[in-house]
Design a protein around this nucleic acid. Sequence first.
DNA 1: CTAGGGTTAG
Length: 601
Amino acid sequence: MNRTLLPKPPHWVLEEKFISLLQSCKVSKHLYQIQSQILTNGLEQDQYITPRFVAACARLKEMCIARRVFDEIPEPQTALWNSMIKGYAQNGLYENVILLFTQMTSMDFSLLNCFTFPIVLKSCLKCNALREGEEVHCVVIKSGFRGNHFVGNTLIEMYSGWRMMEAAYRVFCEMVDRNVVAWTSMIKGFILCHDLVRARELFELSPERDIVLWNTMVSGYIEIGDMVEARKLFDQMPKRDVMSWNTILHGYAINGDVEACERLFEEMPERNVFSWNGLIGGYARNERFLEVLDAFKSMLIEGNVPPNDATLVTVLSACARLGALDLGKWVHLYAENNGYKGNIYVGNALIDMYAKCGMIENALEVFNSMDKKDLISWNTMIGGLAMHGHGADALNLFCRMKNAGMNPDGITFIGILCACTHMGLVEDGISYFQSMVDDFSIEPQIEHYGCMVDLLARAGLLAQALDFVKQMPMEADAVIWAALLGACRVYKNVEIAELALEQLIKLEPKNPANFVMLANIYGDLGRWKDLARLKVAMRDTGYRKIPGCSLIEVNDGVVEFYSLDERRPETKEIYGALRGLTKLLRSYGYVPDLQELGQGT
DNA sequence: CTAGGGTTAG
């Protein structure tokens, strides 16, 4: 067929073609191809295509391309301005939103419409631009948009976000006809300030109460931990949707009532992925990791609600805590086969799971395969390496992190200091600690002081460690004294040990592990009289040390295993495996201290 | 093209 005989398609056909092309555009490369097609057709200033082009750029995080196109247009119309502003907001470039808005107002006031303000006001809140937010509010008034529901509501939201309740309430009162959304935002504002009394007053006054408003009020009580009032309200609701049920379920989960959580989950008329995540998250938050795995398995067996990234992350964190490597690997495969390969949350949870299960190689593989990494990815990997004796690799990775332009935070330095401790690099640890304060302006937290005490103490510098404790700007906690006490045993320092125990008894009088530690030191040194005295003191407290418990993956499950435990049918195999491990360790020169076996049980 | 409600990682 001769193409030249075909008539030129009408304008609107081309428009539709480009719009659908832009909507389905998945990679930046195609963006350039579409752009050149638009140019060859002379449509670069088309009032329908260009905003869509900008929207596609925003979706693919290519706002620079959008900006170049935008700058070429002599007199952009409102829709194009708005699409640029929205694109910047979507990509977190709030400063650009404000800049563009300023430019827009300085050019022509009539460019602004009711779609412009909500995005700009939200951006002001997000980047904490208080003065600019107030200026935009002035523009709202001058341009006559204060009567718009969307604009008014976003103003309430903005001021509430800054806890400027007088300003928020003034906007609310000045609204000529408030709808239920405005009431909800106002109530949400008081909830943010934990002012449940005023929130409830408004709730009672509201002329209309829809499900969203009821749910908001219920979650307000949940946030302040008042499950009784939350439940009372939930029971009074004229109508409930899945989200109402999920809200109260999550409330029990975060307030530590696992049993109520389970009961509610059973009662629910309908369950979606948030319901399952609520139950699974409830188990996880309350350290019931075995139940996390069981619930996850039930979810898969029931099969009508597929897990999402949040589910996988929670399950992986439980695997990490339990050492359930097989299930962790299974989740890894599941994630890759179900579109979570590039998911940063899942990637980070996988790194942590592999690291905690001792599979550093797998953790590194996941880390290296991630093309998007955030601070948590780096911190998890550095911490994982440090925790498992790869201190040098952890420090190297820290260098790579800085070279990649990623700014470390306090958690990063926990990993770094831990790496130094494990390698006995006292000098380096001290200089990293200094660098944290001087180069990165990170204020050391009690955990960092704890790391430093550990660093010094494990290196045998007990007196220096004690000095450090005394110089700390805050009171040392039990973790720090226990670290010091532990090191005292290794270096057989009774004086500091007794001092540390004295503090520990004040901080946690019910923890017999502390007495056991000092008893061990007396035993090591043959101070039997002191030992006897301590045993009497221990008996007087009436507390017994809880036996240490290990979790071991057996076939497709995880079992609890205590020291000298003979309850399990697998006992023989477990002790067999232990003997094998001990033998292996001996061949590397390790001498097990058999006296420790069964201590305190 | 614009407004109010849920989960997840170190």
